[in-house]
């Protein structure tokens, strides 16, 4: 069983730091998602594990082995990239056999292992085809089979679903989850900018922004109790309200709101994180009065943007029979246990 450990890994290109002192441990057999917007350093972190970028400082470990100075082909890693990079001049079976041949696996073992890898990804029928004769989803499966054929301890997936359309993507997501159940020993580092992929697949998520690690935790932890405003807004697009800590709760725009202050000092400035889907329309606990700024119909739900005390609050409510119009005065509310109080100074990215 092989884990991955980043020990204060920094990467710089021409004076710009693209990965800043990353400290992160991926446990053996764990699926870790690196989640962040483009330019957040997540792909750089993955490429540092694969060996395609040299860290300016820090060490990278795969298992117990320090791989920082090793060439990519010495690292024993499986990798799948965004555009798959299937070798266009080789048939599917030769693509899958490539790693086995390169590693000098005995010739007579190769056909069985190719078949096994192709079966595992449901591509057993396609060994004789060329990559260009396959659909995007099929190419994806071959790329995964090729990476798994060498039986790597660590599998690196770099935005593997982003080249697929939305329907194929959810199907492949389920496939990946199944593969991981079948191969529980493989440690997976999964780079994505899509929170749904991260929430669905990952045991833990590392949220990255501006070359730095912002937050690590299980999907539930990050969603329910984000530690930073960036996590709160990037994972689930939360409302972030500037508040002042009071005696029993917080004050926002002159209104007292009842929330768990977790022992924050009275009078301190803080940020209140409230997910749009827990905000209800009409009177209730923690009531806020405002004016509808904009309203969008999204099929099953309505998204309301309500201006409250100079801030725009998003509320996702079940489709309304008679939705309010922009300019209407409305009240919104949320349950005390649905809000999380964050440190002050953090703001949405």
């Amino acid at each position: 069983m092989t884990g991955i450990r980043f020990d204060r890994v920094s990467v710089a290109y021409g004076g710009t730091t693209v990965l800043d002192a990353l400290d992160l441990t991926v446990e053996p057999g764990e699926v870790m998602a690196l989640l962040g917007p483009s330019g957040s350093g997540k792909t750089t972190a993955l490429r540092a594990v694969a060996g395609f970028v040299r860290p300016a400082s820090g060490r990278v470990y795969v298992g117990e082995r320090d791989v920082t100075g090793l060439a990519p082909h010495q690292r024993g890693i499986g990798m799948v990239v965004q555009q798959y990079a299937l070798f266009p001049h080789m048939r599917v079976a030769d693509n899958v056999a490539f790693g086995l041949r390169a590693r000098k696996v005995p010739r007579r073992e190769i056909p069985a292992r190719v078949a096994e890898a192709l079966e595992m990804t449901g591509m057993g029928e396609y060994g004789r085809r060329y990559p260009r004769e396959l659909s995007g989803g099929q190419q994806q499966r071959v790329a995964i089979a090729r990476a798994l054929a060498v039986r790597p301890g660590v599998l690196l997936l770099d935005e593997p679903l982003s080249a697929l359309d939305a329907r194929l993507r959810s199907g492949m997501l389920a496939e990946l989850a199944r593969l991981h159940r079948e191969l529980p020993d493989v440690t997976i580092l999964y780079v994505t900018h899509d929170q749904v992929e991260a929430l669905t697949l990952a045991d833990r998520i590392a949220v990255m922004d501006r070359a730095r690690l912002q937050d690590v935790g299980t999907p539930r932890e990050l969603y329910r109790a984000p530690r930073t405003g960036f996590t709160a807004s990037f994972v689930g697009n939360a409302n972030l309200l500037p508040v002042t800590v009071g005696a029993k709760g917080v004050a926002f725009g002159g209104v007292e709101l009842e929330v768990d202050t977790r022992g924050a000092a009275k009078g301190a400035a803080a940020t209140l994180c409230v997910r749009p889907h827990v905000v209800g329309l009409g009177p209730g606990p923690n009531r806020l009065a405002g004016v509808v700024g904009e309203i969008q119909w999204r099929g099953a739900t309505h998204r309301l943007y309500v201006d409250v005390a100079g801030h725009r609050v998003m509320a996702d409510v079940r489709e309304l029979r008679r939705p309010p119009a922009p300019g209407d005065a409305v009240e919104v509310h949320f349950a005390p246990e649905d809000a999380v109080l964050l440190e002050a100074g953090v703001s949405g990215g």
């Binding site: 694969a50 060439a71 082909h73 499986g78 990798m79 990239v81 070798f87 490539f98 590693r103």
Partner: peptide, 21 residues
């Protein structure tokens, strides 16, 4: 596209093998 060489290297192919194959 460097992605091909990189994919090959990540599969354990040494530079000479990547060049030839």
């Amino acid at each position: 596209d460097p992605a091909y060489e990189q994919a090959a290297a990540s599969l354990g192919a040494r530079p000479a093998y990547v060049l030839w194959r």
